[in-house]
């Protein structure tokens, strides 16, 4: 157990990585696509399906174009990090494991007030829902804790336990920082100390401008339609690959297109070109893709399929 308080953003991430590795999770790397939340990583969305056991932890850069504030708001960012843990089946001591992770990043349970406050999770774009809580530390939400019940329209059996930490907010709290841009990114005593702002202030500005005013909406609309068509085309292929003669269901490549469509939808939303009524229709289209990808995944080996 590390008793000292962490000194930087990256130390908090490293401690979480070390902690969950020590609890037996495979420490994965971020998914190499633009997503709105760590849940979209196939290591969560797809691996929560089927009967195979799973335990993974990873950092996921997440993009929420509408939350961009040109780097000026102390808490809001259009690009931020989530730390994500998924364990299937959910172990009986998951709450204790979680609390251990808070200790690992320097939160002293004897001085702080940790609470599990009802918060049911639902992702209309993923056709997924679960029950759980927001975890509060002294009145601040530090994590989401969810027992997945359904993903992509499929009942989860066994059930996965999912933990999501909003890293910037959690780190600001632990490090006692008021403005995210002032947070030490690496160790303040390093030869070249870097703040979060040194790393991200400029990109926040650039992306805010692009997200809100420049992104070409017609191109984006086309991309959405293309991603949707490609996803369907992939899933329409025969299960048997004519070249190798093997059974290869392409759930992951199809799911990439679903992720793409979802992110494009977020961008279009930020550009304000989607009306309230259209919004539901777009969400429905992404959900339809997510469902088809889930259907495909459960027909793969990783999804528990046995020939």
């Amino acid at each position: 157990m590390i008793d000292s308080a962490p000194r930087s953003f990256q130390e908090i991430i490293l401690r979480l990585q070390a902690y969950w590795a020590s609890k037996g999770c495979a420490v994965l790397q971020p998914y190499d696509m633009e997503v709105g939340a760590g849940t979209f990583h196939p290591a969560t969305t797809l691996r929560a399906l089927g009967s195979n056991p799973w335990a993974a932890a990873y950092v996921q850069p997440s993009r929420r174009p509408t939350d961009g504030r040109y780097g000026e708001n102390p808490n809001r960012l259009q690009h931020y990090y989530q730390y994500q843990v998924l364990i299937k089946p959910s172990p009986p001591d998951l709450q204790d494991l979680y609390l251990g992770s808070l200790r690992a990043i320097g939160i002293d349970m004897d001085l702080h007030d940790i609470r599990f406050v009802e918060d049911d999770w639902e992702s209309p774009t993923l056709g997924a829902w679960g029950l759980g809580w927001e975890v509060w530390c002294d009145g601040m939400e530090v994590s989401q804790f969810t027992y997945f019940q359904q993903v992509g329209g499929h009942d989860c059996a066994p059930v996965s336990g999912e933990l999501t930490y909003g890293l910037e907010r959690l780190a600001m709290y632990v490090l006692g920082v008021e403005h995210v841009m002032d947070m030490p990114y690496n160790d303040p005593g390093a030869p070249i100390p870097l703040s979060y702002g040194d790393v991200f202030r400029q990109t926040e500005e650039e992306y805010a401008r692009w997200n809100f005013d420049v992104a070409n909406t017609e191109v984006l609309l086309d991309h959405f339609v293309e991603a949707e068509a490609e996803c369907k085309a992939i899933l329409d292929q025969d299960d048997t690959d004519p070249k190798t003669g093997k059974r290869i269901v392409m759930a992951h490549p199809a799911y990439d297109q679903c992720i793409k469509a979802s992110h494009i939808f977020n961008l279009l939303d930020a550009r304000g070109v989607i009306s309230v009524t259209e919004r539901q229709a777009y969400i429905g289209r992404v959900r339809a893709l997510a469902k088809q990808c889930a259907d495909a995944f459960v027909r793969t080996g990783a999804g528990g399929y046995e020939a």
Binding site: P89, S90, P91, P92, D120, G130, L131, Y147, Q149, C156, A157, P158, V159, G161
Partner: peptide, 8 residues
Amino acid sequence: PKSMRWGS
């Protein structure tokens, strides 16, 4: 009002 399964 709402219930859930967990683990296996």
